[in-house]
Simulated scan of single mutants.
Amino acid sequence: MSARAHERWAAFLKQIADRHKLVSDEAEQGARAALAECGYDPTPVASAWGAVTHRLQELERRIIDTWNEKVGDTFQAEGYDQATWDSERRKGEDLAFALENARQALEMRVLANGAREMFGRALATQKERLCPRCGAQLAIPFTHRAINVTCAHCNSVGTFEPGALLRTVVAFAEHPVSWEAAQQEWLAMRIAERRIRDTRSPAPLALLKDYERAQIAYWFRYIGTRVHFAPELRDVAHEVRSRMDGWYRMSAEHEQEWVRAGRPREVF
């Protein structure tokens, strides 16, 4: 590959990555300011985030679109071998994948951080945040339920009853905060899924099992966190099995190697 062709493709990928980060940074700062302007009502910010998602997705799509429309043909016309062509295309695919993951993490971070800020502000309006005995501020966790809290200063126990505003904030926070806790498991799940997509059909059983385990790990971490907000999810294993059922029925059942191996579901 000529140095010029190589450098132009690398420069294009860097331009996309830099632009993606700039849009993301501006959106994150803008969301923080907009939340304050809206009186810490999360609804307008959450609704407006669709435009940010659209801009970022356009940048992500531009990578492979540009390769398909221009770059790939140029490399082939100049006589470069298939291995080099595959390697350079893969660089674009890897970047697009990384940017997709960054976009998801950005959205969840913005929503979770906004919820935490709203929680702190809502909490400050409630007298129950103070110890009824010594007046010290109690350490109140994210909660939408009445709970007993032990004062770190005098060890007396006070009851905290969240008001309507706090309940609304916690409901808004439930998904992004839980997702943040499971971010590493989510990324591992994405990687396992991608490995299956990159493999010619039929997918090997080993990759299917890796993806199954990655999904289970994600759901256990996600629901295990979310149960703090939604006690009705306390049977975490049951909830995980319920969420996995769709994959078993809609995906695994259509994989030859999975069926041939006797549908070897993980037991938990």
Rank of each mutant, 00 (worst) to 15 (best):
D86S: 07
F268Q: 07
G30Y: 04
R90G: 04
G30L: 06
I216P: 00
V71N: 08
P42F: 01
D65N: 13
R265H: 14
K14Q: 13
E161A: 08
R61W: 03
V259Q: 11
D73I: 02
K70Q: 13
T84F: 14
T74W: 10
A17P: 02
Q29L: 13
C38W: 02
K21P: 01
R62G: 12
V45S: 01
V157K: 15
Q29K: 15
G163I: 07
R200I: 05
P141K: 10
H20M: 08
R265S: 10
T199Q: 12
R90N: 12
G158N: 09
R109K: 15
Q76C: 10
T159H: 05
W247D: 05
D245H: 13
H6T: 13
T43I: 13
R167A: 09
W179P: 01
S156F: 00
N113D: 06
R195V: 00
D198F: 01
H228C: 09
M250N: 14
I16R: 10
D18C: 04
R19T: 14
P141I: 09
A182K: 03
E257W: 01
R190M: 13
K21D: 08
V236W: 04
Q126C: 13
E100N: 13
V259T: 15
P204Y: 07
G262W: 11
H238G: 10
R55C: 07
I16W: 08
H238L: 14
F229R: 06
S47P: 00
R195T: 04
W186T: 07
L22Q: 14
A83Y: 01
A146F: 02
A33M: 11
D235T: 09
Y218C: 09
W9N: 03
W258E: 02
R4H: 08
V170R: 00
S242G: 03
F172T: 01
